[in-house]
Every structure is written in structure tokens, then in C-alpha cells.
Simulated assay, not measured.
Amino acid sequence: MELTTVWFALITLLWAGYFLLEGFDFGVGVLLPVLGRDNRERRLIINTIGPVWDGNEVWLVVAGGATFAAFPEWYATLFSGFFLPLLFILIALIIRGVSFEYRGKRDDERWRRRWDWCIFGGSLVPAVLWGVAFGNIVRGVPLDAGHEYIGGFFNLLNPYALLGGLTTLVLFALHGAVFIALKTDGEMRERAGKLAATLSVPAIVIAAGFLLWTGVAHFDAIGVIIFVVAALALIGAAAATRLRREGWAFLATALTLVLAVAGLFVTLFPNVMPALDPANSLTVDNASSTPYTLKVMTWVAVAFTPLVVAYQGWTYWVFRKRLTIDRIPA
């Protein structure tokens, strides 16, 4: 197997890991004003992701860095053509991170509520725009012969990409509701479980529509098989939420997100940035770094990736216990 294919697969894995881990962070943030009736309940919800949210964002940094090093042409075209959406995502992530730290700096309810809404907005914007971005990557964008993006911002807001944004939003919200039910106990666990069961219905409908559109418009046999398994996993998540089996529900929503990302990348391959004119598309071959660069990066990845994964797994193990409202002081 060529190193360009290996690194395409590794970048797929990094994005799948990011959607899996940061996905429930976004879902928790979006559901904060829905499930949190007062300050103690909102603190309980935030505490479910408190020890892990910043570590989950590392997957985005690594995915961006890997893309820059392995496929610099892809990185340049993506970050120049999608400048505004990615800027909005970056600003939202900054606001969200600041909000987690600042909401408790003053003993004032209005102060905390403002930062809670910032957490909501800082989670909602990336949850939608990541779907829009990946929808456009799979669909194809206007590129010239020099692989420069020649469209405008509103070219990115096409029906297929907007459906992709709605899909990631509902999937992340469902993933977040299941995670809250998994990490809490008592009344919050019950409410989050009921909300997850409710969200599973629109999630199935919207995700099925997006995956069906993708399979028909950009047919790839292996990609379609992966999408079918992802759909079955989502149906399994819906059943598990109704049975109040939070562990199985979380495993199913996690599998849904990982398989959905994998299916999109399989459908994309060997392109990394398809153009509306196929002659101008970026592929794993014409967008990649030199073979020597890829070889050095491969050895670095082999050495350090297991350490990073092991450390993050240890973090989740340490903070594995359920949280209860009685442990949140008034």
C-alpha cells in the first residue's frame, strides 16, 4: 500500500475520532439550556465533559497538522476556500472554551446565564458548520486549474451541504444526550434518556436522507455498505435509548459517527478535494508531500499515536463514575 493511501486512511481515522469525541461535547453544549433548569443542573451537565473536552479538541489539531504535512495542497485549498466557515468554527471554539472557565468567576446568575448561552452558541456553530464543510468536500467545489477555490461563501450553502450540517447537528445532539444519561444519575439521567429517545427519531430520518443522497449522487459500493451499517447502528441506538441501556446506546451512536465519517472518506477516495470540473480535482497523488516526508511522518505516527490514545483512554477511565446533583454545592 502506498504511503499516500496510508495517510489518507490515518486522516480519516483522526476525523472519525474527532467526531466521536468532540461530537458529544458539542451535543452536551447544545442541550445545556434544554436539560439544565437551574444553575446546579447546568453545572452538573458541564461537569460531564469538564475533564475531557479540551483533550477531545486535540484530535482536531492533529487532523489539521497531519493534513498540512501529508497533503499540503489539500490543506492550502481547504483553508483558503473555506476560510469564513473555518473562521466561524474557530471563533466559536474559542468562545466555548472561555465560557467554561469564566462562567463561575462571579457569583451572579445573569453572568452565568450569559456564559451558558455562549457555550450553547459555541457548540451549535461547529456542530452545523462541520457538516456543511464535509458536505461540500464530498460534493465538490469550483476549483481552477491551479487548484484554487473560485467560488464564494454562498456557494458553500447549497442544499446538500446544508443537509449535511443538519445531520451532524442532530447526530451530535443525540450523542450528547446519550452521554449525559450515561454520565449522570437520578432525575438528570432520566430526563436525558427520554430526550435521547425523542431525538433518535429525527436523527434517523435526517441522517438517512443525507446518506441516501450521498450514496446516489456519489456512488461507491464500499461506501454504501458502510452507510448501511451506520444506519443500522443508529437504529440500534434508538432501540437502546428506549430500553434505557445508556452504555449500548452510546456505543451505537459512537459507531454511527465513526462509520459515517469513514463512509464519506471512502466515497471521496482517491480525491481529497473534488472539483466540479474533474480535471481540476485534488487527489491523494497530486496533493501529497514527498515520499521522504511521508516516510518520516509514518515513523513518528507509529511511535507517538499509541501513547496519545493510551493517555486519553486512561483519562476517561479515571473520570468514569456517574455524577449526581447532590454533589453540586448550592
Rank of each mutant, 00 (worst) to 15 (best):
G186H: 05
I45G: 02
D285L: 11
A260K: 04
A237N: 09
R110S: 11
R245P: 01
L162S: 00
P85H: 06
S200I: 01
L234K: 08
T214F: 03
R113P: 01
T5D: 11
F210C: 02
K183D: 08
F210G: 00
V201T: 13
V125E: 08
V132R: 00
L323C: 04
V258H: 06
A275T: 02
F26C: 07
R43F: 04
S123F: 04
R322Q: 14
V6T: 14
F227P: 00
E246Y: 13
I150S: 04
P291W: 07
V228E: 04
L166T: 10
A133I: 15
E2N: 12
A301V: 12
L259S: 10
G209I: 05
N271I: 00
D38Y: 06
R106Q: 12
P142H: 02
L212D: 04
D285E: 15
F269S: 14
L251I: 12
T184N: 08
L93P: 03
S288N: 09
L14I: 12
R189F: 01
A92M: 10
L60V: 11
N136P: 01
R327V: 09
L282I: 09
V261Q: 13
I89S: 09
A196I: 04
W317P: 02
F269T: 08
A70S: 14
T290I: 03
T253C: 11
M273L: 13
I222R: 12
L307V: 15
G81H: 01
T298D: 08
V141G: 03
S80H: 08
G131W: 09
W111K: 09
A145C: 04
G64V: 11
V266S: 01
A203G: 07
P72Q: 01
L211P: 08
L257N: 13
Y316S: 10
W117M: 15
A217Q: 14
T305H: 06
Y149Q: 00
V266K: 01
L93D: 03
A254V: 07
A230K: 10
V61S: 08
V224D: 03
F24R: 08
L234V: 07
T4R: 12
E109A: 14
A287H: 02
S288F: 04
G97R: 07
P306Q: 07
V58C: 10
E22W: 07
G131M: 07
F19V: 14
A177S: 13
L3S: 13
W117R: 14
N39M: 05
W299L: 14
S289N: 13
L259W: 09
N47Q: 15
F82V: 05
V30T: 14
W314T: 12
V318W: 12
L84K: 01
A249P: 09
V272Y: 00
V296C: 02
A197R: 11
I91T: 11
V205M: 05
V201I: 15
I225W: 11
T67M: 15
K321N: 13
D25M: 12
N286L: 04
V141F: 01
W15N: 11
A173S: 15
H175E: 07
R242Y: 09
Y149T: 01
Y311G: 10
A254K: 08
A260C: 12
L10P: 02
Y316F: 15
T283K: 02
N280Q: 08
S289D: 02
L264V: 15
S123P: 09
A66L: 13
L169Q: 06
F227W: 06
T198Q: 10
I325N: 02
V28A: 09
V228D: 03
